[in-house]
Amino acid sequence: MKNLLKDLCSIKGISGKEESVCKFAAEKLSVFADVCITHDNSVIGVIEPEEGRKTDKHILFDAHIDQIGLIVTYVHKNGFIKFDTCGGLDPRILYGSTVIVHGEKDFNGVICSIPPHLMKSKDKSSLSIDDMFIDIGFCSESIGEKIKPGDRVSFNKGFYELLNGNIASPATDDRSGVYVLIKLAEKLEKLKREKLNIKFTFLLSSREEIGHLGAKTSAYKIMPDEAISVDVSFAKQPGVSNDKYGVLGKGPMIGIAPSLSTKITDSLKEIAQRENIPHQFEVMKGRSGTNADSISLIRSGIPCGLVSIPQRYMHTGIEIVNCNDLDNVTELLFSYAKQGGAK
């Protein structure tokens, strides 16, 4: 299983520049579904009932395909690059990081900062993106041709297989969701032959990290009867110890929130209990901060559920997820789909 996840996490797709990873994911998904790529870089895959059969319901499964990163704003001739964030990033994760600048080709760089004793700001201990640059280590007259404002930058980190099936990598937010959806499509495609009357759409949505843009545009087009978003959510880790957070390896986190459909949530709970799928609950006081918030408001409203994969160190280059959790999320969604969605 790890190979597909590894490939998905290794191919870069910072918000708005998801082309490469879209192409890869579309190819994988196309084995099981009819696939198209939208003009704004989302992948849509469809598994429909056989011709001549009526469709009772249309269920959408969504996971976002973009990842957080940086965006070039200015290129100094001497090879130092000014940047801003593309998605929410703590400056403390940036300083000293190795990165890849995706210019005309890929250039390795290091994020540097003016050292504290030379800082002009009052607070010497705090790090600010204003004091930081990406250094690619060489200067060239043609550097401005090779790297341009708007180019994206990603963390230069590998795919680490840690103990107990835990994976640390950039972009497990939310390529692990993309992975789940491809696996789900594989399982549902087999079911098609059992003549289900349900249409399934798999949306690998772009630009989530900058405001759920891809989910908004594509859900409008897809027009499902109900939808479930698959994203990552907070697992306990150093500094995050409250029992309200999830636990890595303890199964899907079923989202419960005023903004989510109670009917879908209850069905997910019921299935997890019935099928003995390890699971946990994530209760949110209003919106969920995921694509589900946006999909639920499309057209005249779409009932929406949320299933999250527990994750440590969200929005860093070393986001950890657990492989068993991915399998269990797939199982839960498969059972949900098989029974025809929310009951």
């Binding site: 680490y160 929005h315 860093t316 070393i318 950890i320």
Partner: peptide, 26 residues
């Protein structure tokens, strides 16, 4: 300040590990 987000190798068997940070959302 350079430590958060780093990947490391530990001991003779080079066990991989990472130094995390609290998610910015929290």
């Amino acid at each position: 300040r350079i430590l958060p987000g780093q990947s490391v190798l530990i001991g003779k068997n080079k066990i991989p590990g990472v130094i995390g940070l609290k998610p910015i959302h929290l």
